[in-house]
Amino acid sequence: MLPGFDEALLEKANTKPTVLTYASEEIIVRQGEPATKFYILLEGDVEVFQDFPDQPTRLLNRLSRGDYFGEVGLLRGGKRTATVRVTKNSEVKVMVIEEELFQLFVNNSELTSNDVVRRLHQRVMTSHLSKALPNVDPSEIVAIASQSKGSQYKANSIIVQQGEFGDRVYLILEGEVEVSVIDQGESRTIQLKSGEHFGNVQFSDAQNYPVYLRAIACTDVELMAINRDSFCNLILKSNTNSDIVASVLHHQFLNF
Protein backbone atom coordinates (compact mmCIF):
# COMPACT_ATOMS: atom_id res chain seq x y z
CA MET A 1 0.00 0.00 0.00
CA LEU A 2 2.78 2.44 1.00
CA PRO A 3 6.25 1.16 0.05
CA GLY A 4 9.01 1.38 2.61
CA PHE A 5 6.94 0.62 5.69
CA ASP A 6 8.79 -2.43 6.99
CA GLU A 7 9.88 -4.20 10.16
CA ALA A 8 13.21 -2.33 10.29
CA LEU A 9 11.38 0.98 10.70
CA LEU A 10 9.04 -0.48 13.29
CA GLU A 11 12.00 -1.52 15.41
CA LYS A 12 13.39 2.02 15.40
CA ALA A 13 10.20 3.57 16.76
CA ASN A 14 8.84 3.62 20.29
CA THR A 15 5.26 3.44 18.99
CA LYS A 16 3.61 0.90 16.71
CA PRO A 17 0.73 1.26 14.23
CA THR A 18 -2.73 0.54 15.60
CA VAL A 19 -6.04 -0.22 13.88
CA LEU A 20 -9.14 1.72 14.96
CA THR A 21 -12.78 1.49 13.90
CA TYR A 22 -15.07 4.50 13.46
CA ALA A 23 -18.86 4.47 13.12
CA SER A 24 -21.10 6.21 10.58
CA GLU A 25 -20.60 10.03 10.55
CA GLU A 26 -18.04 9.88 13.35
CA ILE A 27 -15.28 12.50 13.18
CA ILE A 28 -11.75 11.09 12.93
CA VAL A 29 -9.81 14.36 12.92
CA ARG A 30 -11.12 17.85 13.51
CA GLN A 31 -9.92 21.09 11.91
CA GLY A 32 -7.82 23.20 14.29
CA GLU A 33 -6.65 20.34 16.51
CA PRO A 34 -2.90 19.59 16.84
CA ALA A 35 -1.63 17.20 14.15
CA THR A 36 -0.04 14.17 15.81
CA LYS A 37 -1.15 11.16 13.74
CA PHE A 38 -1.23 9.83 10.18
CA TYR A 39 -4.11 7.64 8.93
CA ILE A 40 -4.36 4.95 6.25
CA LEU A 41 -7.86 3.89 5.21
CA LEU A 42 -8.24 0.10 5.40
CA GLU A 43 -12.02 -0.12 4.96
CA GLY A 44 -14.86 2.32 4.29
CA ASP A 45 -15.12 5.88 3.03
CA VAL A 46 -14.58 9.32 4.57
CA GLU A 47 -15.32 12.90 3.58
CA VAL A 48 -12.94 15.83 4.02
CA PHE A 49 -14.46 19.19 5.02
CA GLN A 50 -13.00 22.61 5.68
CA ASP A 51 -14.44 25.63 7.48
CA PHE A 52 -13.80 29.18 6.28
CA PRO A 53 -14.72 32.42 8.05
CA ASP A 54 -18.13 33.76 7.00
CA GLN A 55 -18.60 30.93 4.47
CA PRO A 56 -20.45 27.61 4.51
CA THR A 57 -18.45 24.48 5.30
CA ARG A 58 -16.87 23.11 2.11
CA LEU A 59 -16.62 19.47 1.05
CA LEU A 60 -13.07 19.18 -0.33
CA ASN A 61 -12.74 15.50 -1.13
CA ARG A 62 -13.89 11.92 -0.60
CA LEU A 63 -11.39 9.22 0.29
CA SER A 64 -11.72 5.44 0.18
CA ARG A 65 -9.78 2.23 0.87
CA GLY A 66 -6.07 2.68 0.19
CA ASP A 67 -6.13 6.46 0.55
CA TYR A 68 -4.53 8.25 3.48
CA PHE A 69 -4.79 11.56 5.31
CA GLY A 70 -3.20 13.57 8.12
CA GLU A 71 0.11 14.20 6.36
CA VAL A 72 -0.50 17.92 5.78
CA GLY A 73 -0.42 18.91 9.44
CA LEU A 74 2.49 16.57 10.22
CA LEU A 75 4.69 17.77 7.36
CA ARG A 76 3.86 21.41 8.09
CA GLY A 77 4.29 20.98 11.84
CA GLY A 78 0.99 22.56 12.74
CA LYS A 79 -2.70 21.98 13.33
CA ARG A 80 -5.27 20.05 11.36
CA THR A 81 -6.31 22.02 8.30
CA ALA A 82 -9.53 20.09 7.67
CA THR A 83 -12.08 17.81 9.34
CA VAL A 84 -12.31 14.16 8.26
CA ARG A 85 -15.62 12.40 8.90
CA VAL A 86 -16.93 8.91 8.18
CA THR A 87 -19.56 8.93 5.43
CA LYS A 88 -23.18 8.21 6.33
CA ASN A 89 -24.13 4.53 6.68
CA SER A 90 -20.50 3.46 6.55
CA GLU A 91 -18.03 1.98 9.02
CA VAL A 92 -14.35 2.80 8.69
CA LYS A 93 -11.19 1.02 9.75
CA VAL A 94 -7.95 2.99 9.73
CA MET A 95 -4.34 2.23 10.52
CA VAL A 96 -3.10 4.96 12.85
CA ILE A 97 0.59 5.91 12.76
CA GLU A 98 2.04 8.23 15.39
CA GLU A 99 4.13 11.25 14.35
CA GLU A 100 7.48 9.69 15.31
CA LEU A 101 6.95 6.63 13.13
CA PHE A 102 5.48 8.73 10.31
CA GLN A 103 8.65 10.86 10.18
CA LEU A 104 10.81 7.73 10.11
CA PHE A 105 8.60 6.36 7.40
CA VAL A 106 8.92 9.45 5.19
CA ASN A 107 12.64 10.06 5.80
CA ASN A 108 13.67 6.47 5.07
CA SER A 109 11.80 5.84 1.83
CA GLU A 110 12.34 8.06 -1.19
CA LEU A 111 9.37 6.59 -3.04
CA THR A 112 7.03 7.11 -0.12
CA SER A 113 8.33 10.61 0.54
CA ASN A 114 7.71 11.63 -3.07
CA ASP A 115 4.21 10.22 -2.96
CA VAL A 116 3.38 12.00 0.29
CA VAL A 117 4.74 15.31 -1.04
CA ARG A 118 2.65 14.91 -4.19
CA ARG A 119 -0.49 14.28 -2.14
CA LEU A 120 0.40 17.15 0.18
CA HIS A 121 0.74 19.54 -2.75
CA GLN A 122 -2.59 18.46 -4.19
CA ARG A 123 -4.42 18.85 -0.88
CA VAL A 124 -2.81 22.20 -0.07
CA MET A 125 -3.78 23.58 -3.47
CA THR A 126 -7.29 22.15 -3.14
CA SER A 127 -7.70 23.91 0.18
CA HIS A 128 -6.42 27.24 -1.13
CA LEU A 129 -8.49 27.21 -4.29
CA SER A 130 -11.60 26.21 -2.34
CA LYS A 131 -11.23 29.34 -0.26
CA ALA A 132 -10.52 31.54 -3.28
CA LEU A 133 -13.29 30.04 -5.41
CA PRO A 134 -16.19 29.05 -3.14
CA ASN A 135 -18.64 28.74 -6.05
CA VAL A 136 -16.62 26.15 -7.96
CA ASP A 137 -17.27 22.42 -7.70
CA PRO A 138 -14.64 20.79 -5.41
CA SER A 139 -13.87 18.09 -8.00
CA GLU A 140 -12.70 20.76 -10.42
CA ILE A 141 -10.54 22.26 -7.70
CA VAL A 142 -8.97 18.84 -7.05
CA ALA A 143 -8.22 18.59 -10.77
CA ILE A 144 -6.40 21.94 -11.01
CA ALA A 145 -4.55 21.25 -7.77
CA SER A 146 -3.15 18.01 -9.16
CA GLN A 147 -2.02 19.79 -12.35
CA SER A 148 -0.30 22.82 -10.84
CA LYS A 149 3.45 22.65 -10.29
CA GLY A 150 5.91 24.29 -7.97
CA SER A 151 9.36 25.20 -9.31
CA GLN A 152 12.51 26.82 -7.99
CA TYR A 153 14.86 29.02 -10.00
CA LYS A 154 18.37 30.15 -9.16
CA ALA A 155 19.20 33.85 -8.99
CA ASN A 156 19.44 35.51 -12.42
CA SER A 157 18.03 32.48 -14.26
CA ILE A 158 15.45 32.84 -17.05
CA ILE A 159 11.93 31.69 -16.13
CA VAL A 160 10.03 32.62 -19.30
CA GLN A 161 11.54 33.40 -22.70
CA GLN A 162 10.11 36.16 -24.86
CA GLY A 163 7.87 34.61 -27.51
CA GLU A 164 7.12 31.52 -25.45
CA PHE A 165 3.51 30.36 -25.64
CA GLY A 166 1.52 31.83 -22.73
CA ASP A 167 0.01 28.61 -21.43
CA ARG A 168 0.54 29.17 -17.69
CA VAL A 169 0.04 31.73 -14.95
CA TYR A 170 2.89 32.10 -12.46
CA LEU A 171 2.35 32.88 -8.79
CA ILE A 172 5.46 34.13 -6.98
CA LEU A 173 5.75 32.33 -3.65
CA GLU A 174 9.24 33.43 -2.61
CA GLY A 175 11.77 35.90 -4.01
CA GLU A 176 11.51 38.55 -6.71
CA VAL A 177 11.47 38.49 -10.50
CA GLU A 178 12.08 41.01 -13.26
CA VAL A 179 9.72 41.33 -16.22
CA SER A 180 11.40 42.90 -19.25
CA VAL A 181 9.10 44.30 -21.93
CA ILE A 182 10.35 45.31 -25.37
CA ASP A 183 7.86 47.64 -27.06
CA GLN A 184 8.64 49.39 -30.37
CA GLY A 185 12.36 49.02 -29.83
CA GLU A 186 12.28 50.35 -26.26
CA SER A 187 12.91 48.16 -23.25
CA ARG A 188 11.44 48.65 -19.79
CA THR A 189 11.69 46.48 -16.71
CA ILE A 190 9.34 46.02 -13.78
CA GLN A 191 9.84 43.97 -10.64
CA LEU A 192 7.31 41.58 -9.16
CA LYS A 193 7.54 40.49 -5.55
CA SER A 194 6.35 37.59 -3.47
CA GLY A 195 2.56 37.47 -3.62
CA GLU A 196 2.26 38.91 -7.12
CA HIS A 197 1.60 36.94 -10.29
CA PHE A 198 2.26 37.02 -14.01
CA GLY A 199 0.27 35.79 -17.00
CA ASN A 200 -3.20 37.18 -16.24
CA VAL A 201 -3.38 39.02 -19.59
CA GLN A 202 -1.35 36.76 -21.84
CA PHE A 203 -2.85 33.44 -20.82
CA SER A 204 -6.45 34.64 -21.10
CA ASP A 205 -5.89 35.67 -24.72
CA ALA A 206 -3.86 32.53 -25.57
CA GLN A 207 -1.00 34.72 -26.82
CA ASN A 208 2.74 34.32 -26.71
CA TYR A 209 4.53 36.12 -23.90
CA PRO A 210 5.72 39.52 -25.23
CA VAL A 211 8.23 39.71 -22.37
CA TYR A 212 10.80 37.62 -20.63
CA LEU A 213 10.76 36.80 -16.96
CA ARG A 214 13.83 36.07 -14.84
CA ALA A 215 14.83 35.76 -11.20
CA ILE A 216 16.62 38.87 -9.94
CA ALA A 217 20.38 38.64 -9.50
CA CYS A 218 20.56 38.34 -5.72
CA THR A 219 17.96 35.76 -4.72
CA ASP A 220 16.43 32.41 -5.67
CA VAL A 221 12.76 32.29 -6.65
CA GLU A 222 9.98 29.81 -5.95
CA LEU A 223 6.97 29.86 -8.26
CA MET A 224 3.70 28.03 -8.64
CA ALA A 225 2.66 27.44 -12.26
CA ILE A 226 -1.01 26.80 -13.05
CA ASN A 227 -2.35 25.59 -16.38
CA ARG A 228 -3.93 28.43 -18.39
CA ASP A 229 -7.12 26.70 -19.51
CA SER A 230 -7.86 25.22 -16.08
CA PHE A 231 -7.26 28.55 -14.37
CA CYS A 232 -9.44 30.43 -16.87
CA ASN A 233 -12.28 27.97 -16.38
CA LEU A 234 -12.14 28.38 -12.61
CA ILE A 235 -12.13 32.18 -12.87
CA LEU A 236 -15.12 32.14 -15.23
CA LYS A 237 -17.13 29.93 -12.87
CA SER A 238 -16.38 32.02 -9.81
CA ASN A 239 -17.41 35.49 -8.68
CA THR A 240 -13.84 36.72 -8.29
CA ASN A 241 -10.81 37.55 -10.46
CA SER A 242 -7.22 36.46 -10.96
CA ASP A 243 -5.76 39.10 -8.63
CA ILE A 244 -7.89 37.92 -5.72
CA VAL A 245 -7.12 34.26 -6.43
CA ALA A 246 -3.38 34.96 -6.58
CA SER A 247 -3.46 36.89 -3.32
CA VAL A 248 -5.33 34.14 -1.49
CA LEU A 249 -3.13 31.40 -2.93
CA HIS A 250 0.04 33.14 -1.88
CA HIS A 251 -1.09 33.94 1.65
CA GLN A 252 -2.51 30.50 2.31
CA PHE A 253 0.40 28.60 0.74
CA LEU A 254 2.96 30.27 3.00
CA ASN A 255 0.85 30.03 6.15
CA PHE A 256 -0.87 26.67 5.75
Rank of each mutant, 00 (worst) to 15 (best):
C218H: 14
G185C: 02
N239Q: 12
T15Y: 08
E100M: 05
A246S: 15
T219W: 01
F165P: 12
E99P: 08
L59M: 14
S148N: 01
V84C: 05
E47F: 04
V169C: 07
V94F: 06
M224L: 15
F256K: 10
T240C: 06
I244V: 15
T126L: 12
I190H: 07
D137S: 07
L20V: 08
N200W: 04
P210G: 09
N89P: 00
E140L: 14
T189M: 09
T219A: 13
I144W: 04
V19L: 06
S109V: 10
A35P: 12
F231H: 05
E196P: 02
L75T: 03
L120C: 05
V48N: 07
L75Q: 04
V94A: 07
G163H: 10
L223H: 02
I235F: 00
L173R: 07
V96F: 00
L101A: 05
H251I: 04
S194I: 02
Y22M: 07
D205I: 08
S187L: 04
D67A: 13
L192G: 03
T240E: 10
R188E: 15
V116P: 11
D167A: 14
N239F: 01
P134F: 00
G78R: 04
G150N: 09
V169H: 14
V117G: 02
H128S: 14
K193C: 04
V142K: 12
L63F: 03
V142E: 15
F253C: 06
A246R: 06
A155D: 04
A143G: 02
D205M: 12
T21Y: 00
T189F: 01
Y39N: 09
F105M: 15
S113A: 15
E196F: 01
N14M: 11
A8D: 14
V96M: 01
L120Q: 11
R85S: 09
S127H: 09
R62P: 06
R65D: 10
I158P: 11
T81A: 11
I40H: 08
N107L: 12
Y153W: 09
V48S: 05
Q122W: 02
H250T: 15
S194L: 00
S180W: 00
L223T: 15
N108D: 15
V84R: 00
I97D: 10
N200K: 13
L74N: 04
F253D: 12
Q55H: 06
K37A: 09
Y170D: 08
N255Q: 13
L63Y: 08
R58C: 12
V142D: 13
E99S: 14
S157Y: 06
I244N: 08
